[in-house]
Design a protein around this nucleic acid. Sequence first.
DNA 1: ACCTCCCTTGAAAGCGATTACATACATGAA
DNA 2: TTCATGTATGTAATCGCTTTCAAGGGAGGT
Lengths: 325, 325
Amino acid sequence: MSSIKDVAREAQVSIATVSRVFNNPGVVSDQTKTRVYSAAEKLKYTPNFSAKTMRKSIVGTIIVMIPDISNTFFIDIVHGAQDYAEMRGYNILMGRFDILHFDLRKYVELVKSKAADGIVMALGHNRHFASVAEAKNIPIVTIEEKFMENPYIYVDNSEAINKIVEYLISKGRTRIGFLGFKSEKERLFAFKNSITKNGLEYDEELVKKGDEFGEAVYTSAREYVETILKNGKIPDAVVCASDVLAAGVIKWLIKNGLRVPQDVAVTGFDNIEVAELVHPGITTVEQPREIMGREAARLLINKIEGQEVAKKIGFRTRIVIRDSA
Amino acid sequence: MSSIKDVAREAQVSIATVSRVFNNPGVVSDQTKTRVYSAAEKLKYTPNFSAKTMRKSIVGTIIVMIPDISNTFFIDIVHGAQDYAEMRGYNILMGRFDILHFDLRKYVELVKSKAADGIVMALGHNRHFASVAEAKNIPIVTIEEKFMENPYIYVDNSEAINKIVEYLISKGRTRIGFLGFKSEKERLFAFKNSITKNGLEYDEELVKKGDEFGEAVYTSAREYVETILKNGKIPDAVVCASDVLAAGVIKWLIKNGLRVPQDVAVTGFDNIEVAELVHPGITTVEQPREIMGREAARLLINKIEGQEVAKKIGFRTRIVIRDSA
DNA sequence: ACCTCCCTTGAAAGCGATTACATACATGAA
DNA sequence: TTCATGTATGTAATCGCTTTCAAGGGAGGT
């Protein structure tokens, strides 16, 4: 690889001039610029990234961390962040964390060693990770999670659940069940509130806290269906805290001879691809995932570049009506 | 941020010694080591990444490029690559490309500027991108795609399709249709071969080349179903080149009153989450995605580190039988 | 003709590390 | 005691680039 020195020699100018041609072309004469450009082209010169960032305080790379699950929900967030980051001239370093044994230190280290400038954490429903003392003083933005004093992006889960419940009620459903997550309380809480607020009875037996990730999700859905079948108390609608859960519930209801939505309406949450693909299509809540990713990246980059940023940014959700409810 | 110089001063040693403590601790005395460690701790010293890589020839970052679509297929590949890369001390820089207007240059530039060491491209079925002259002489490994003279990872599509076809035949299906991709010929070709080889008639009217990505996939599936319905020639089985296509076909068949698999069996390809989630579950072909990602990373890192690597590595597929066929 | 001022360019310091080479000291062999 | 050897550490060059400071030279003003 040829360096700035080689180009300088080839163009018969100093290395300072070569540097200027690429970083501050305005100050150098046209004639010199031409010479430098053609020398650079001839030698296939590409400025060395490390050398450059060693002199600058900003690297131009941000880390986006998502849980170690394959879920398009998180991918959209990454995409959104990436689009925005690219616009601002930043690259994305993919971080990944094990939802149960989460070690943030590695990534904090990456930022401290100036391999990256900051971190976006898309946490979903993970409440397991501990605070990391080292994580102080490095730029972090989280999504759907508050982490220390850092800015975060969130959606109004209560409002979303309430919208879903009221939609079901407007369709004449009165015995509404809920399948949520073990480690996420907000949606269940919102569900309970919404049910009582609307004058319905909150029935513990129609409510279950399932698993959030991996194969266990399917199992949770199946168990939920088996339970209500065994209890003989069949709800006329089930609100699920994710589309994957909803798809599972639909599948097992149908397998057991129930019709969706005629016998039981089912709603999801997230509006990922699955919601469109299954039959019947899932009525669900859409969160602006790409935009949330963008905004997280925006906050982070602004923070990295020393600007004041908002403490938090909230987004509203939107109900997507399909055939399942 | 404190630098090696600060630590040296604090520990009353030279910077060379500090560097040795972190890179080659064997040669420095225990006493000195202790002094340096505590000085480093006190000053919260973290070695600067750029400064380090400026002296080394290897950066420790590889780029993994996947199409700009949300598909768990590619995510698993990234995960596999990431696991392996981490083991070897490398980070993953997420690349992303627009499946239609693909510009490799940006990422090639990243490698040339030594922001990363090499590229893994998971191409799926994209045949659109042009060769990039600049991409010569940089370490690249592709998945499911041959790109210039670079090593690649592949699966035996013909064998997979043949296995699926023969499975269907063994279940008594004789009028088998195919829904493939516009830009991928291999699977269609394999299908045609398999059909004739097994003494069945290859019927153009039961074959369609659909879209591969995004919303257009659903449309392709719907159009396929509409076409066969309109023609009045209903196959008793449909082989689809992806699970998403298969899910779409199942959905539209059911909507039109046909039963899956009783009236029409449907098979997919990939074994992504969707195959498990929909009802009926999709019988499909599984590719070892994570392992493919791992192997790609392994080849790439070996190449980066100057070892000889295989020209290509093939994987066999496995049929996953569910209810749709 | 002389002095400013601006435009362009070069020289050199410095970013934070690694590492080849040199040096100092202790140890054991002769 | 002397010398060779090995161990621990320091000195300084170097990686490739940015940036400050200085300087050369032409243009314009007086």
